[in-house]
Design a protein around this nucleic acid. Structure first.
Length: 332
DNA sequence: AACGGGACCAACCGCTCTCAT
DNA sequence: CATGAGAGCGGTTGGTCCCGT
């Protein structure tokens, strides 16, 4: 028993000049299929010679396992398969073969390709880091929000408008997106009437230094606040893409969090932020009823629209308070 | 119709792992 | 235990197709 003697150089194929590369022809495929059906693949190294193929054993193995195997499943990935990939990837990362083992008929190569070309892109569009499965925290992804905050702060410094400060609080509290802020036209008294606890939760007083704006510490997300801004109130936003998104957040995990403000004489700006919103329209809703254990994120355009949108189910933990809280703290 | 750029995916490359000697 | 062959894995490449201009 034991292995056969090694070839002269394992890293160099002795028949390199005759070895064929590139796409497989249907004749080669048939040759490989016929041989394996008759004899099994046995030693991949010796298979090409025995099968009369001018390919290396490795190439034959890949061709068989990724394409010719009879149990290969072809076609679009189902929603369920996507969920499995997403879930497993969030746990084990780029272990494609392990993920493939949980998806009968799918190969590691196919899953890897699907991840890199479809799912990775979807996650990035959702503002989620595909490697960590957490909201992106890199500077680039935060840039629109940072610019917006800087502009708002500058406005407040120039005008010293207490109202604007309150609106900023509302905006941050609501995590509803800049476009919502821009569209508000109601008055502060009305906002206070509809949100009686607001002033208790936001101890900022009229006339306080704008520095405190940068000292806001986010504890979590909050209720969706939809009070519009006065028509004559204008906030400079500098062509932000963020004006395209509005979060409509419904359901568990949201609605109980709040902001607190921290009084500090520190000169360093430490404004913190909500989970980074996606760079395109996003609607987050719960699937009521049948899918209580999962949360669906619909994306890609208007709901009920042109079919360009699709639905996506995300790991439940992405929407749990503990998860959100942890990520928010990491952003601080 | 021609062209360019992006998306997709099969295949390759190089490294690591497993296991027999 | 050390060595090395064979197999497996994950990252990358390159060819093809599609779509917009």
């Amino acid at each position: 028993m034991g292995r056969s003697p090694a070839p002269p150089n394992r890293n160099r194929n002795e028949n390199n000049d005759e070895m064929k590369k590139g796409a497989w022809t249907s004749e080669e495929d048939q040759q490989l299929i016929n041989y394996i059906q008759k004899h099994g693949h046995g030693s991949w190294r010796s298979l090409p010679k025995l099968a009369g193929l001018k390919r290396c054993g490795k190439s034959c193995r890949l061709r068989w396992t990724n394409y010719l195997r009879p149990d290969i499943k072809r076609g679009e990935f189902s929603q369920e398969e996507e969920n499995v990939i997403l879930h497993l990837h969030s746990i084990i990362g780029n272990k494609w073969s392990t993920i493939a083992a949980r998806l009968p008929g799918r190969t590691d190569n196919e899953i890897k390709n699907y991840w890199n070309t479809h799912m990775k892109k979807k996650l990035l569009e959702r503002g989620i880091d595909p490697m960590t499965h957490r909201p992106r925290t890199d500077l680039f992804s935060c840039l629109p929000q940072l610019v917006a905050l800087a502009n708002i702060r500058e406005l407040l410094e120039h005008n010293q408008l207490a109202q604007n400060l309150q609106y900023l609080n509302l905006f941050l509290q609501g995590n509803t997106g800049l476009s919502t802020l821009l569209n508000r036209t109601n008055s502060i008294p009305q906002i206070q009437e509809e949100n009686p606890n607001l002033m208790n939760e936001f101890p900022l007083e009229v006339g306080q230094e704008s520095e405190e704006i940068s000292q806001l510490v986010l504890v979590g997300n909050s209720n969706h606040v939809t009070q519009p801004l006065h028509d004559d109130q204008e906030v400079s936003i500098m062509n932000l893409q963020t004006s395209n998104y509005d979060h409509d957040i419904v359901g568990h995990g949201y609605g109980q969090s709040r902001f607190t403000s921290v009084n500090s004489s520190s000169s360093s700006s430490s404004a913190t932020w909500t989970p980074i919103p996606p760079l395109m329209d996003t609607v987050i809703t719960n699937n009521s009823g049948a899918l209580e254990s999962s949360t669906t994120v619909s994306y890609g355009g208007n709901t009920g629209g042109d079919g360009g949108g699709s639905s996506y189910e995300w790991p439940e933990y992405l929407f749990e308070d503990s998860f959100l809280d942890q990520n928010l703290r990491e952003m601080c």
